[in-house]
Simulated assay, not measured.
Amino acid sequence: MKSVRMLMQCALGMGVSVTASAYDLNQWPTRYTSPDGTQWNITGNYQYDAMFARHNAVIEDAHTHRRKEFGLSARKQGQWDAIVYFDFQSKSWLDVFWRVNSQWLFGKDYGQIRLGHSKPQVGFEGGTASRANSFVEMALPMQAFFETRRTGIDWAFERPRYLLNLGYYFASDLNGNNDGNTVTARAAWTPRKQQADVLHLGLSASLEHPHGSTDGRGVYTPASVRWRARPEAGLTDVRLIDTGSLSHVHSNRRLGFEGLWIHGPLSLQGEYLQARSLRQQGLPGYVGDGYYLFVSYVLTGESRTYAGGNVGNVIPARPWGAVELLLRHSALNLDHDPINGGHQHDLTLGVNWYLTQHFKFQANYVEARASQQGVQQHPSITELRAQVYF
Results as ranks from 00 to 15, higher is better:
Leu293Asn: 08
Tyr292Pro: 08
His336Asp: 15
Ile315Trp: 02
Val287Arg: 15
Leu347Val: 10
Arg328Ala: 05
Leu273Val: 11
Gly309Cys: 05
Asn313Leu: 00
Arg279Ser: 11
Pro284Asp: 15
Leu325Tyr: 02
Tyr291Phe: 15
Asn313Ala: 06
Asn313Met: 00
Ser303Ala: 11
Ser277Leu: 15
Ser303His: 11
Gln280Phe: 01
Leu347Ile: 09
Gln344Tyr: 09
Leu327Val: 12
Leu283His: 13
Gly342Ser: 05
Gly342His: 10
Leu347Ser: 03
Ala307Pro: 01
Gly285Asn: 15
Gly308Met: 06
Leu278Val: 11
Pro316Ile: 02
Tyr306Gln: 02
Thr300Glu: 03
Leu326Asn: 08
Tyr286Gln: 11
Ala275Asp: 13
Gly282Gln: 11
Tyr291Asp: 08
Arg328Val: 02
His329Lys: 08
Leu327Gln: 07
His343Ser: 13
His343Ala: 12
Pro316Tyr: 04
Ala317Leu: 12
Pro316Ala: 04
Ser296His: 06
Val295Thr: 13
His336Met: 08
Leu299Asn: 07
Ser277Pro: 06
Ile339Lys: 07
Tyr291Gly: 06
Gln344Thr: 08
Ala317Pro: 02
Ala331Ser: 03
Asp337Cys: 12
Gly312Thr: 02
Tyr272Ser: 14
Gly288Phe: 14
Tyr297Glu: 14
Arg304Pro: 03
Ser296Phe: 04
Tyr292Phe: 15
Asp346Ala: 05
Gly342Thr: 09
Ser296Gly: 04
Leu327Tyr: 07
Ala331Tyr: 14
Ala275Leu: 14
Ser303Cys: 04
Tyr291Lys: 08
Gly308His: 06
Asn310Asp: 05
Ala275Phe: 04
Val287Ala: 15
Gly288Met: 14
Pro338His: 13
Gln281Thr: 10
His336Thr: 08
Ala331His: 06
Glu302Gln: 12
Gly308Gln: 12
Leu334Gln: 08
Arg304Ser: 03
Ile339Thr: 15
Leu327Ser: 01
Tyr292Lys: 00
Ala275Arg: 05
Arg279Gly: 13
Asn340Pro: 02
Leu334His: 10
Val295Tyr: 04
Asp289His: 13
Arg328Lys: 11
Val298Gly: 06
His343Gln: 12
Gly285His: 14
Leu327Pro: 03
His336Tyr: 15
Pro319Ala: 05
Ile339Met: 11
Gly290Ile: 05
Asn310Glu: 06
Arg304Asp: 04
Gly309Phe: 14
Gly312Phe: 00
Val323Gln: 04
